[in-house]
């Protein structure tokens, strides 16, 4: 077969592929486009002519101003930031320290706890949901605190994080460095934070991305813990919108746009890392 013919047939295959991909891509983006289009329209136009570019009455920014106020966006946004941020910080800190000691110390209790964590990864949230509320709501009465939710996020994220740090430390952190530092008189905490922790960066990045995405979007657990309006996170606040103002399509549209914007901005900035992190998290 001659080269030019083969090349041109490869080219057509390439073009067909791109056309198919572009079509599928447009279908995938369609809901976002429709959302964005209608978020700037007046309520009557959204209901009567949701497909048209602009309504009879033109575009408006009013939906955003009103939704911003009604869902208390600043408070809700800050709640989400605090809960996601502090949880991620504590998850990384506690799970890396725990994994380190699990790898380096051959104690029976370490082996037992590590196995227990591995098994617990198959337990879905729904199985512990009711007892969790019974213990922390009924017995201790400490629902409606951000700290309670953060503590639970940390607890639920431990197994997977310890597992990933465990694999990385065992395979990729040489013990010789630590022994040298030990001879020079450094204590275990100093050895960990000055020598080991900086080497964990790739796993830290992966875990921060995975947990930040999961916690930012989490609905069920926060909705059970935080029933006080002042503590709502973004997903809970949006839910309230649908229920209480279900006739206010215009406000709902604007609220949904505002709810997805932070994640989209972060994605545009960190796309490469997010995709790499998600793949690393799934395959390990």
């Amino acid at each position: 077969m001659d080269r030019t013919k083969e090349n041109s047939s490869l080219k057509t295959v390439g073009i067909v592929k791109v056309v198919v991909l572009a079509a599928v891509f447009l279908i995938y983006m369609f809901p976002f486009y429709m959302l964005l289009l209608n978020a700037f329209k007046y309520k009557r136009d959204i209901i009567k002519m949701p497909l048209s570019w602009g309504g009879k009455n033109g575009f408006t920014l009013n939906n955003f101003a009103e939704a911003f106020q009604k869902m208390n966006f600043m408070t809700v946004f800050l709640n989400s930031v605090i809960i996601t941020g502090v949880s991620c910080l504590l998850i990384i800190l506690f799970s890396s320290m725990c994994a380190y000691i699990f790898v380096r110390k051959d104690w029976k209790i370490n082996k037992f706890l590590f196995l227990l964590m591995l098994f617990s990864m198959v337990v879905p949230f729904q199985v512990v949901m009711i007892p969790l509320i019974s213990i922390y709501g009924g017995t201790f009465g400490i629902l409606n605190h951000r700290a309670t939710l953060i503590f639970m996020h940390v607890g639920f994220s431990m197994s997977m994080s310890v597992f990933m740090f465990h694999g990385f430390i065992r395979g990729g952190v040489p013990i010789a460095l630590e022994e040298a530092a030990g001879i020079d008189g450094a204590g275990p905490l100093r050895i960990f934070f000055q020598i080991v922790f900086p080497l964990l960066k790739p796993t830290i990045a992966t875990l921060v991305i995975l947990h930040a995405l999961a916690l930012w979007n989490d609905y069920l657990l926060p909705s059970l813990i935080l029933t006080d309006k002042a503590l709502y996170t973004i997903p809970i606040a949006t839910k309230l919108f649908q229920g209480a103002y279900s006739n206010d399509m215009d406000l709902l549209m604007a609220a949904l746009v505002m709810a997805i914007i932070p994640a989209i901005i972060l994605y545009l900035a960190l796309q490469k890392y997010i995709i790499a992190g998600v793949v690393a998290g799934a395959v390990k």
Binding site: C98, I101, L116, P131, L132, F151, V154, G155, M158
Partner: peptide, 20 residues
Amino acid sequence: FLVFAGPAVLAFLAVIIIPF
């Protein structure tokens, strides 16, 4: 053990194992 694994194990037991 308490310094390194303590917080992680406490949160893990309190949120998953004990409720389970």
